[in-house]
């Protein structure tokens, strides 16, 4: 069981240049993966191809072994969920509850199931206090959690979060961790696109790096954040603690503050 793309290419209609070129990646069900890299690298475009919003002009997309070619976005949505980078591109109802229940009603799920799912995602994302606020009056960082709730309610096996960390404070980042734990407990795969390297290093063992329309590295976070040439090619900086450890030439590879403090106190030279 995996979500897999092989050599996908895509150009936006009317655009003379490609947005992604021969991108390949495979994400197993239950896995947690971060995608990082340069603005304009093709991260969101790849995500939208995974979710079948766009059909690749070349290459294949396989969801649990099934080619998505010729399938509708609605058919894929129950397997692969995508939370948009810009929440305003995703929200189209004038009411939080309607927004969450929309697809469930379209699928004609039983009423008790709709209510159960709606209540569950309101709590997991922490947006219950905003239940009766107009979606566009909800503060931006919390509006993101509304769009996450909408996708969680559809219960897909692969969940793609596009820049969920943007503009989030400590509360928001903790809430995201709660969401990810919930998904992981249900055996879902989580693919998170983020520019927040502290968050990535803390929460994802596997990191995919994109630059120049392509994947330039895919591996363990401890290797990725110590490969300077890859990072600079993708306009990425390692977490602050990692960078300090690198500058001090500490032997141990550190990813966060606790590890840095431990290494310093133990006198790693």
């Amino acid at each position: 069981m995996a979500l897999e793309v092989n050599n996908i290419c895509f150009s936006y209609p009317g655009s003379p240049v490609t947005a992604v070129e021969r991108v390949s990646m495979k994400i197993e069900k239950g896995e947690r993966v971060a995608i990082i890299g340069q603005n304009g690298a093709g991260k969101s475009t790849t995500a939208k191809i995974l979710n079948n919003i766009y059909q690749p002009t070349g290459g294949t997309v396989l969801v649990d072994g099934v080619d998505t070619k010729g399938k509708t976005t609605a058919q894929i949505a129950s397997h692969v969920g995508y939370v948009f980078q810009n929440p305003n591109d995703q929200i189209f109802n004038d009411d939080v509850v309607k927004e969450i229940e929309y697809v469930l009603r379209y699928w004609k799920l039983p009423e008790e199931e709709i209510v159960r799912r709606r209540d569950e995602v309101l709590d997991i994302t922490g947006i219950r206090p905003f239940m009766s606020t107009h979606p566009f009056d909800i503060p931006l960082p919390i509006r993101k959690f509304l769009t996450i709730a909408v996708v969680l309610a559809t219960d897909p096996d692969y969940v793609i979060l596009d820049e969920p960390t943007a503009g989030q404070d400590n509360w928001g980042r903790k809430q995201l961790q709660t969401v990810m734990e919930y998904l992981q407990n249900k055996g879902k795969a989580i693919i998170t696109i983020s520019h927040d390297m502290e968050f990535v290093a803390e929460n994802f063992e596997r990191v995919i790096v994109m630059a120049h329309k392509n994947v330039i590295a895919d591996g363990d976070r401890r290797d990725i954040f110590y490969r300077q040439e890859i990072l600079s090619d993708a306009k990425v900086k390692p977490p602050v603690s990692t960078h300090i450890a690198q500058e001090l030439h500490l032997e141990r590879r550190v990813l966060n503050l606790e590890e840095l403090v431990a290494a310093l106190l133990q006198g790693d030279a």
């Binding site: 404070d169 400590n170 977490p239 602050v240 503050l257 403090v261 106190l265």
Partner: peptide, 28 residues
């Protein structure tokens, strides 16, 4: 609940461990 810089957190953690940095840095 206000986030503080990593380097300030580092200084605080070292101080707490009984090995203070001697000053609080605000940049790398």
């Amino acid at each position: 609940g206000v986030q503080i810089p990593q380097v300030v957190q580092l200084a605080n953690a070292l101080a707490k461990a009984g090995k203070p940095l001697g000053a609080i840095p605000v940049n790398e």
